[in-house]
Write a protein that binds this DNA or RNA. Structure first.
Length: 416
RNA sequence: CGGGACGUGGCGUAGCUUGGUAGCGCGUUUGGCUGGGGGCCAAAAGGUCGCAGGUUCAAAUCCUGUCGUCCCGACCA
């Protein structure tokens, strides 16, 4: 891919609205462009990363028996009246009317819709379990959007809903999804911590959150220094120095960004919305539900926060928009261009390659490359005529001059 | 929603106190020089100073209102 065609509007200075590191960097690296408070355009580089996150999610969920579908963002009031949430949700719910003055909202979550979608079908235990998910834009009219993609009014989310005939089956799936999430975040290169949480407004009886530890996080986590105990402070009430309820160790607190959560919903929606099935005993019972979310745009932001400095970024292997960044210091004379293009073509057979084909000075290209954060940079300079290129590994900051003949071998050994 | 701050070419900003031709850096265009860490010289384009009203001979500047954006707090599957 030629950089000149990709639309990567890098900036020397961050817009003054950007306050936290990841937000500044995302704006400077040409990843996002703010449209209004808490609403962003994801530019091509960010979009590529988002697609990579989505791919990981799809693989891990599909592998465990979940099915992807797509539900409407535009949701009629009737369903929200059924669950009772039209009145309960408050101003965070984006409400609107159609031309016939009928009430709608833009979905902040999809319990109502998914329950409506399956309730006629799930009439027997034989149809259970079922696990349905979607990746979609969600809307919440937040009182205060914050820190770029951290808390938006419009954001990309994966939401999954499971349906079960009994508690044991829900427990089994909950555990399986917990493992899926652990794997999803591991593959995304994010260090997360699982913390117990309150089940909040949505109702239910057990919940865990996946937290990326970070200074800019909005949640405070209480965790034990001696055992694995960790809980959202909102829920645990434990503060710095308190005694761990599990092992008696010392509690510490830290800030975290919630990138995912899993909930045992129970029968809150199936009861109110009449999603009943006939059990093995021949009784009509409300189906037992679980719901599981991942904030995809927030995960993107958390990744940048975790993998960046003030003016450079290094994408984790599975998220990176490209594998190799080829940076010819000189991309002017025809013979050279042809040679570089040939190299890129051969590399593109095995790798996703970004070629900085712009007629810019070396310094400009290098600064942009640092911002863009492709893990491996190949500089094509004076020694190219002697069959040599400079290879930078951003993961360990190791720079070396390579013979072109050794390039394939080197790349192979990096396991890109 | 309470508190605070800020709206001036694409980005960052000066000017506002004390009203009088809107300036600078970066970016953009053209030409030349350059060519391994955001270059240099020259020329040029680009701005309803958020919007509305008011005061005044005259408003980016003063007054009123309004909209927007950010930060702190409260809030949050």
């Amino acid at each position: 891919m030629k950089q000149s065609l990709l639309f990567v509007p890098t900036l020397k200075e961050a817009p003054k609205d950007a306050e936290v590191k990841s937000h500044k960097l995302m704006a400077r690296a040409g990843l996002i462009k703010q449209t209004s408070a808490g609403v962003y355009t994801y530019l091509p580089l960010a979009h590529r990363v988002i697609r990579n996150i989505e791919t990981i999610i799809r693989e891990e969920l599909d592998k465990r028996g979940c099915s992807e579908m797509l539900m409407p963002a535009l949701q009629p009031r009737d369903l929200w009246d059924e669950s009772g949430r039209w009145d309960l949700y408050g101003p965070e719910l984006m409400r609107l009317k159609d031309r016939k003055e009928r009430d709608f909202c833009l979905g902040p979550t999809h319990e109502e819709i998914v329950t409506h979608a399956v309730r006629d079908y799930i009439n027997s235990y034989k149809k259970l379990p079922l696990a349905l998910y979607q990746i979609q834009t969600k809307f919440r009219d937040e009182m205060r959007p914050r820190f770029g993609l951290m808390r938006g009014r419009e954001f990309i989310m994966k939401d999954l809903y499971t349906f079960h005939e009994n508690q044991e089956d829900l427990d089994r799936w909950y555990q399986s999804m917990k493992e899926a999430y652990t794997e999803i975040f591991r593959r995304s290169g994010l260090e997360t911590r699982i913390v117990s949480s309150d089940t909040g407004q949505i109702g239910g009886d057990e919940a865990d959150e996946f937290m990326v530890m970070s200074e800019v996080g909005e949640d405070t986590i209480s965790y034990c220094m001696s055992c694995s105990y960790a809980a959202n402070q909102e829920f645990s009430g434990l503060s710095d120095g308190d005694v761990c309820p599990k092992c008696g160790g010392t509690i510490r607190t830290a800030k975290g960004i919630e990138v995912g959560n899993i909930f045992k919903l129970g029968t809150k929606y199936s009861e109110s919305m009449n999603a009943l099935f006939t059990s093995r005993e021949g009784k009509r019972e409300p189906v037992i539900m679980g719901c599981y979310g991942i904030g995809i745009s927030r995960t993107l932001m958390a990744s940048v926060e975790q993998h960046s400095t003030e003016d450079a970024l290094v994408w984790p292997k599975e998220l990176t928009p490209f594998d190799l960044h080829v940076v010819p210091v000189n991309y002017r004379d025809d013979a050279l261009i042809e040679k570089v293009d040939g190299l890129v073509r051969s590399l593109e057979k095995d790798y996703r390659v970004l070629l900085d084909d712009r007629d810019e000075r070396a310094g400009v290209k290098f600064k942009d490359a640092d911002l863009i954060g492709v893990p491996y940079r190949m500089v094509i300079g004076k020694d190219f005529s002697n069959g040599k290129i400079e290879f930078l590994n951003r993961y360990n900051d190791h720079k070396e001059v390579l013979d072109l003949e050794d390039l394939a071998e080197t790349l192979k050994s990096l396991n890109i």
